[in-house]
Write a protein that binds this DNA or RNA. Sequence first.
RNA 1: GGGCGCAUAGCUCAGUUGGUUAGAGCGCGUCGCUGAUAACGACGAGGUCCGAAGUUCGAAUCUUCGUGCGCCCA
Length: 1131
Amino acid sequence: MFPSVPQDVSFPRLEHDVLQFWKQHQIYEQSLRQRTGRPSFVFYEGPPTANGMPHPGHCLTRAIKDLFPRYKTMRGYYCERKAGWDTHGLPVEVEVCKDLGIHSKEEIEQYGVEPFIHRCQQSVWRYMKEWEQLTERLGFWIHLDEAYVTYHASYVESVWWSLKQLFDRGLLYQGHKIVWWWAQGGTALSSGEVGQGYRQVADPSVFVRFPLTDDTDTSLLVWTTTPWTLPSNQFVAVHPDLSYAVVEDVRQGGKLIVAEVLAESLAAKAGTQFRLLDRINGSKLVGRRYRPPFDFFAAESYDQTGHLKTGGEEAVAWRVVAADFVTVDSGTGLVHQAPAFGEVDYEVLLREQERFLPGEGPQLICPVAPDGTFTDPVEPWKGVWVKDADKSIVRDLRQRGLLWHQEQVLHDYPFCWRAEDDPLIQYPRRSWFIRTTRFKQQMLENNRHIQWLPEHIRDGRFGNFLESNVDWALSRERFWGTPLPIWVCEATGQMEAVASYAELLQKPGIDGTGAWETAKQQYPDLPDDLRVHKPYIDAITYDSPYQAGARMRRVPEVIDCWYDSGAMPFAQWGYPHQGQERFQQQFPADFISEALDQTRGWFYSLLAISTMLFGPGDPTESNDSDATTPHYPWPHPYRTCIVLGLMLGEDGNKMSKSKRNYREPGEIFERYGADALRWYFFANQAPWTSIRYREQAIKESIPEFLLRLWNVFSFFVIYANIDGFDPSERIAGDAGQLAPDVLATGRGYRPADQRSEIDRWILSELHRTTEAVIERMDAFDNFPACRHLHDFVDALSNWYVRRNRERFWSGPVDSPDKLDAYWTLYEVLVTTAKLIAPFTPFLAETLWRNLTGMFHSRATLSVHLCDYPVPDSRVTDSLLSQRMALLREIASLGRAARASAKLKVRQPLSRAEVVLADDRHLQWLQEHAPLLAIEINVKAVEFTTEGEEYIRYKVVPNFKRLGPKLGKNMPKVKQMLEQADGAELLRQLEQQGRVALNLPDGPVELSSEDIEVRLQAKEGWTAAQGEQTVVVLSVELTPELIQEGWVRDLVRQVQERRKAISCDYTDRIAVGLATDSEELRQAIRQHAEYLQGETLAESIQFDALADTEPVQLEIGGHPLTLYVRRIVPSQ
RNA sequence: GGGCGCAUAGCUCAGUUGGUUAGAGCGCGUCGCUGAUAACGACGAGGUCCGAAGUUCGAAUCUUCGUGCGCCCA
């Protein structure tokens, strides 16, 4: 016996049983173990951060990450899945600060870096349990207990190794980074934080004259909204392709240079008029020198020059430079450049520095202290908060006659999100960079070899991002992160990088390791991993190799946590300090997947680090620098990347806990089940489509797919148990995965070619589906794969089972046909369980275990230990598929015709006529007329291709074929075919093999392949039309047909009654019918056998049954009282 | 401001190299089925495929411009 299938199936409950089973038998571990030694399929887990609650979006990522490894494992690959956690970074610090009720770095230092770090380390695991539960409950098979963790010492040291590589190769350097700076708090803000703080404010908008050095009567007119940056001016930028006007200011006097297109509006703005004196191209202005508005720096170094790399000398500052970012949207077309206080301006400075010999170019001018006040060089405003100095600076300019015009401007400006009165300023900070720009071409080349899904990411979002690559700003002036492993000589400033803690301990004169030991004594529970973190690592110093007596001290910074995650291909194994073999085996990845927002995050950090470390190397480097590091062919570190769309909340907004626009994953699992959620993700849209979370859609995947398959399964089990069908009978020894050749040894099993056609059909569909699913899944295309599975289950349920029900409940238990039906359905279900296993692993397991239970230990324990099915071309029959599809279409048309005539299916009709466009499938259809007759309840179905009585032929050109041939004549041909008599055209075609048309350009001949015939039903017939078929129904009703319809109606009522009195499927009943209508009695007598057969009625009497509840009915307008009683078996 | 993407039925989404009747599910309406049954099936209504122009014999599909939205970056 198969375990009976519960009537009220609860998928969540089944899933819990399955989880239990997996755990108990270690199915995941077994699935891996049995693939040992097979080719590997490498998967990398992009580490999530367990610092926040998981939401349905995370479920999507984890579901996709599970699907392909499961699939590949079943296809015979060895696929290790190591979990990972991203644990460093600002978000963690922010969380801890929230708990402590503090904000700034100063406050953290007051609180103490040591306890702060301890809290960070603990905070990282805040939602760990939720994440682990979600992972397990979703059926995401991954080794959680062997997860890599970015704060672990082995991980950190691996990262150190890689940074040392870069440092030793000269790829790590110090420079300035212009950051958004909260001066009052003394900290930089992340872009996310800055984004939160924009607000509209009024700022001064000033137009200032910068007189040309060689023509002091002529000034560059420059615009700015930050007058406080004017003392730090270093250049004026113009667009080289823009036309500039030299004008005379009629009212104020003097000459100005402004962008020509802006001249008129500027004059109007200042209430003056300009007289155009000359036009000059932007490129001609480049190199012209001017006097800056303040002399704080120019007083001493105005005439300073430097040698250019290309030869010659040039003034280092206060001259016009060319820049593409200059626009005429606002301002004057001449842009004031203060590199210290603008990221774009800073890039101009870098570009200028590049032109000079090392050390001879312009230096950064920054007369502002980190607290936002002016420093010494700007004597008049020394100690003044820069924004407060604006007014007085403008006044000063006016007094000196440099201010041309002043007004106010409303614009968006960022403020600190924690102190909303504090405006942020752009400010230069010392920072460490990685010279990624040297690897741009290699990164692009690497990128070209990656299979991106969707494809456009490669040359679109990701490719563009790589094209505009800038050096990676690596360092962070924070606390909780991987410490930058660079030690500086306090005397000479020379530096070296360290690749491991052990290496550090080898250094001469090492000191400071005691800080950690003290802490460990004080807090014995402290994880040893913290030893490599701040503040303990900062305490370690050693003798400088550069100068006797000097000490080496670590730089204070930690690194960007994106570098951590990008280092995971090797750092997850602790490479190269350990795990060298594991790394070799597991590099590069065959498959990774994360959401779109990782383009510039993990996808980039992985690619950049890997390209720098394992690529061919920078051509400018000497080749022997890192001979020990292996190199790999492109692409690495990942071959295929599915970029998932973002998931929005139910209301179309970003998912947010406070808006409650989604349901917590845990609740979804308990309401609908993990399979329902998974199927919703896999089968409803391509994974890269951005979707809106919709609970209803998750719910729908149950009846759509899961329940539909379940019902087929349930049907099978009910009848197999009634008939005692036992597949394990006669199958000796190890039945393994119940492959076709094993099933073939079963009792009563006949090869497919001996079974009925519909059995062959569903097996053919099964194998065609298998083929299609494999084809799509090998291309990482789950959505179409699911559609094939969905369509197959639909065909199985709504055609195969529907058309075969009778075979299961009638006839002797051992009839070959019945056994064929069982074997067919059994094989289909067992195979389907394997097919769906990667998608809906729980349902698949439940089916498998039930269907194979009677083999006990002789069958494979779990469906997930099976091989994925392979299609057998001997079983597929595409002609049969095509024909069955046509048959189904005709049945559908028959129902449509009935519906339009308002004739319910229960009423038998005498005849249906099916008109076909051609005779290709005529004979086959004729052979299947009985099946169709049952389906649409008619006595006879006839097929014909000569249906002019009912239909019109419409001949349309085959556009795809004729288009290229006919070109412009296409519409004419279409029109001629439309107007011609279709039947006549077909006769011509039949007799002469072609149709000749006389076009204005000359005659054209069309063969039968050049045209398509469509059928249209003529008016006046109860008919329905498809493209190539019309079904016409005979609507005449004879008394016999009507009576038969009554009995069918009665059968249904009796069945209803059986259900009402809780009859089992096999229970026999006694039926009593009381009616005054002789006509009705006559009809029932006529079809008594049919009635008894359908309802398992042992007896029928035209009278009341004693002790039986009567039911009042009306059949064909005649009142009737029905009695149904269950007959208790005598034994 | 820049880059990328999206826009198709009331809703959520498909739509294969351009081919002439644009599909599915849900919802809605009508009907049916009843030995899978607190399921299920059929049929129907519902679309200027965001707008405009262009290429083409032919455009939801290709090109350009515009509009709206999303993401990333400024």
